[in-house]
Design a protein around this nucleic acid. Sequence first.
DNA 1: ATACTTAGTTACGCTATAATAACCACGGGA
DNA 2: TCCCGTGGTTATTATAGCGTAACTAAGTAT
Lengths: 120, 120
Amino acid sequence: MPRQAPACPIHEVIGVFARPWVLHILYALSTQGPARFSQLKSRIEGISARLLAERLRLLEQQGFVYRNYEQTIPPTVTYGITHRMKDIERVLGELERVARKWGEPVTAAPGKERSLPTAK
Amino acid sequence: MPRQAPACPIHEVIGVFARPWVLHILYALSTQGPARFSQLKSRIEGISARLLAERLRLLEQQGFVYRNYEQTIPPTVTYGITHRMKDIERVLGELERVARKWGEPVTAAPGKERSLPTAK
DNA sequence: ATACTTAGTTACGCTATAATAACCACGGGA
DNA sequence: TCCCGTGGTTATTATAGCGTAACTAAGTAT
């Protein structure tokens, strides 16, 4: 599947956030403030320059991250989160609350009985 | 990458919801009520039996969908959403609200100026 | 002259996973 | 006797995209 941009905005946002490193990048920028490329790279253990650049490009396109390029030598490029990302942070907070409420993952019970009590 | 189950609960949930057909399945069950396998399959245009079965298995494991098996001939298997899914629906509602607020996607502006105004 | 810095880009192999299609058991009906 | 419907499973193929690594420009410092 050629990773389409779905018509549904929810689908699109979730698709972006699920890609590798995206949450790490946003978390790093969100909790430790704006950073230059290589600074950000060293904040995020294990990420490669290729993927960091690619994900930042994606996040910038989507409006979750801004990019500030200063044409110095060597160049100074600063990344940070946008207002739009602040909106998302609230939603993620909600999500974390409910996920935490569930406690232990159901994954830990791979037995015969496979279901939780139904809703409605 | 062998699709690991991340330690972070948010990461895990987002990973599940981003997989192909998952939102379609949950939407179909949520808006049109519980359904049998083949019924569900015809509600969701384009999905294959293989992926529908696999995604249902995943969603059941994660506790978002329940599965009720009746040993008739032919078998009767009913799927529906759980309480846990109801929690998520609220979060998705939030997400939709903010996404809608943004209006048109930023994607529509691939010019020189690539950034939105910064936050903080 | 050569090395060093930043902020990436390019090339390449590998593999996880989606798409498609064929197949299965079970008993009932024609 | 053969086919049908249900609820899947299995095999095969194709490809998106991740990981690794090497390379780049442009100026400054040694």
